[in-house]
Computed example of a mutant assay.
Amino acid sequence: MHMERISPPGTGGERETLRAYLDFHRATLALKCEGLDDGQLRRRASPPSTLSLMGLVRHMAEVERQWFRRTIGGAEVPHLWSDHHDFQAAYDATDASGAEAFAAWHAEVAHSRKVEAAATSLEVTVYVPKWEEEVSLRLVMLHMIHEYARHNGHADFLREAVDGTVGA
């Protein structure tokens, strides 16, 4: 579950900065989950929502898979927790285990890093049918930073509801 969280550099190139911010947000999600058992990771803070910390980890594994493995990498791989392109299905962690969720997430993050590193530049583009336009690796990385930042805000509230831990 642990992922070292290193603050992004105050100076540096664009790609290095994007990588650092994305990794910072990935590590923040791991930090929000650190030290919790499966029951705590599954706890829902705002019923009837199925949102939980484990659900966020599962969702972000699916999002990593979508943007890096499928979109940028061009791989045709199945969804992790849905047969019908339903990213919301990952939120329901009722019968899930932390080991399974974190293994999937770590595997997708590792694969995402490889796909990003192999791209020749941030200008690499791919067509996204849902958006009906070409998007660059730069946009995908910025989108992922946005996804993590938004969901890490949710993780703050979810963690506080579990055991009162705030901050970081």
Rank of each mutant, 00 (worst) to 15 (best):
M1E: 14
M1K: 10
M1Q: 08
H2G: 06
H2V: 12
R5A: 08
R5C: 01
I6W: 01
I6D: 02
P8V: 02
T11P: 01
G13A: 11
E14Y: 08
E16R: 03
E16Q: 07
E16T: 11
T17Q: 14
T17S: 14
R19T: 09
Y21W: 15
L22V: 05
L22R: 04
H25A: 02
A27F: 05
L29E: 07
A30E: 14
K32D: 07
K32T: 11
E34D: 10
E34T: 13
G35Q: 14
D37N: 14
D38C: 07
G39P: 10
Q40L: 11
Q40W: 10
R42G: 04
P47S: 10
L51H: 02
S52D: 07
L53Y: 10
L53I: 13
R58F: 01
H59I: 14
A61W: 08
E64S: 03
R65W: 00
Q66G: 00
W67G: 02
R69C: 00
T71Q: 00
I72M: 06
I72T: 01
A75D: 09
A75Y: 02
E76H: 01
P78K: 07
L80F: 06
W81C: 00
D83Q: 12
D83R: 09
H84F: 02
H84L: 03
H85C: 00
Q88S: 11
A90I: 14
D95H: 10
A101Y: 09
A101N: 07
A101T: 11
A103E: 15
A107V: 04
A107C: 08
A110Y: 06
A110I: 06
S112A: 15
R113P: 06
V115L: 00
A117F: 02
S121L: 05
S121V: 13
S121N: 01
V124G: 00
V124Q: 07
T125M: 13
V128W: 07
V128L: 08
V128E: 00
R138K: 09
L139G: 02
V140R: 01
V140K: 05
M144P: 05
M144N: 08
I145S: 01
Y148H: 04
R150W: 10
H151A: 10
N152I: 14
N152H: 09
N152P: 13
G153M: 08
H154I: 07
H154M: 04
D156I: 15
F157L: 11
L158P: 00
L158V: 10
L158A: 12
R159L: 05
R159K: 10
D163W: 09
T165G: 01
